[in-house]
Amino acid sequence: MTTDIPGWVPVEHRWLGLDRRRLRPAIFVLVVALLLIYGWPALNAIVPWDNPIKAGDVLDLGDGATAVPPVGWQLEDGSLVSDRAGVSPTNDTVKLAKAGAEIQITGAAFDGTAAQFLEQVIRSEDPDANISGAPSTFTTTSGLVGVVRTASGQSGDELIAAFKMSTTEPDAAPALLVEASTVPGSFQQYSTEFQALLRSITPGAGA
């Protein structure tokens, strides 16, 4: 004689308070979910980056805008001009990395000046960050005038630069944000490469 009271588990089918007869779906889901959640990151951790910037490579910033990245850094996100990938100047990002240092370039739609854009970025990302007092002006070789600020903290040092990608009508042009960061104590080592990249930023023809 068996019981058919809902929720009653016969003693021979109990395991840690659970019904052993109904473990299979739960175990299957748990195993597959954990494989997806932790398996891919584990595989990602053992696959190395192998996409170094070579001499002559030029970053595509969209609408003909370009920048010259430092040779030897890993291009982890973004496109080169030679890729002909159809980059959006207000949407795409570029990420370059080299031992302890990272450069991130982000395009955005913004109406206003480069200084206003930089203020908006700081306000939205981390208003309490240790950003240096006065912003300074930075002019690229192509004549783009941007605004640069630096930040320093326990986690490292950072340079933030904002540009409007037009020399003729900057207010309505797409904005470009360059964030270069390093682990503590190594900013000086990379500052020449950061400045070279900033100087190389060029708007598209006619902008």
Binding site: W40, L75, D77, S79
Partner: peptide, 14 residues
Amino acid sequence: AAMLEIWSKLLGPA
């Protein structure tokens, strides 16, 4: 997030 980065490594960002 992890799998997209694996593809970036294998296929390049573009």
